[in-house]
Amino acid sequence: MMATWLRPWLLVPVAVGVLAAGQIWMSHLRYELALENQRVNTDRQETLQQSSTLRLELANLTRPERLRKTAQEKLGMAPPKPMQVVHL
């Protein structure tokens, strides 16, 4: 038996309340996701930046002039003469 205080028109405020709560929850979820997205994007930017810096560092460390100087001054090496180079 339906309770006496239950009236069909009560569905309207209840629906409005549920929708409003849903809207608030969605908004919160959107904010959280946007925050997460921002964090991921920042991480991505930082990784790209780091990769760019590392690429530059690698290019700097492996530049032929530096390798030549290191080989000659630290390791006492000399450039090979053409006759000393053998390609297998």
């Binding site: 930046q49 760019s52 810096t53 690429r55 530059l56 690698l58 290019a59 492996t62």
Partner: peptide, 18 residues
């Protein structure tokens, strides 16, 4: 950033860093 410049073997000749 500006585009990077590479040599014929893909080695970095110019790169922009932030």
């Amino acid at each position: 950033p500006r585009g990077s410049i590479y040599d014929s073997k893909g080695r970095t000749l110019a790169e922009s860093v932030e």
